Simulated scan of single mutants.
Amino acid sequence: MYNDGYFPDHLVDKGKAILLSLCGRIETEQPADLAALYALTHAATDEFNALQEEFDAAGSEIETVARDVIGEEFWFVATAYGFDGADIEELIATRDW
């Protein structure tokens, strides 16, 4: 998203921070199963939901391309922590973008 001028870098930075925070929560809380992981990813997705307003104010939005990129990043995080069976759609199921 940094390579696309449609997405303001300072807001992409905020999205990156959400994902890094998710990693920290996974490391701290060590979810035992997918249900526990999904609770964490849903909370992070809710943070992206709130960020949508800032994208709108900047003349941008979390649209199809961004949704796919963000979803893939959530899946990358899940698999990096050993949750290979995570469903990409369930990881971001609470999204409103």
Rank of each mutant, 00 (worst) to 15 (best):
Q52Y: 11
A86M: 10
D84H: 06
T41Q: 05
A43N: 13
A39V: 11
D46P: 02
E47I: 05
G85Q: 15
I62Q: 13
T79W: 12
L51T: 04
G59F: 07
D84Y: 13
F48V: 08
I70H: 01
D33E: 14
F55P: 14
L91A: 10
G82K: 01
L91Y: 11
G71L: 06
G71N: 01
A86Q: 11
E72Q: 13
Y38H: 11
D87N: 15
D87H: 12
A57T: 02
L91Q: 12
E47T: 09
V77F: 06
L51D: 10
G85R: 09
A44K: 14
E89S: 06
G59S: 09
D68T: 08
A57S: 02
A66N: 06
E47Q: 14
I88H: 07
I62F: 08
A57M: 02
A58W: 05
A43E: 15
Y38V: 11
D46V: 11
V65N: 04
V77G: 08
Q52S: 14
F76R: 09
I88T: 08
D46M: 09
D56W: 12
A44S: 15
A39T: 14
H42R: 13
F74D: 12
V69E: 10
F83Q: 04
S60V: 01
L40V: 04
D33H: 06
Y81A: 00
G82F: 03
A32F: 01
A36Y: 07
E47G: 00
W75C: 07
L34H: 12
T41N: 07
A35K: 14
H42Y: 10
Y38M: 09
F74P: 10
A35T: 11
W75A: 07
Y81C: 07
D46Q: 14
E63M: 00
N49D: 08
Y81S: 08
A35L: 13
E90D: 01
S60W: 02
V69P: 01
Y81H: 14
A66P: 13
L51P: 04
V77A: 07
G59R: 07
E90V: 02
F48S: 08
A32Q: 04
V69A: 02
V65K: 03
F55R: 10
A32W: 00
T41M: 07
D68S: 08
G59L: 09
I62Y: 07
T79M: 13
Q52I: 02
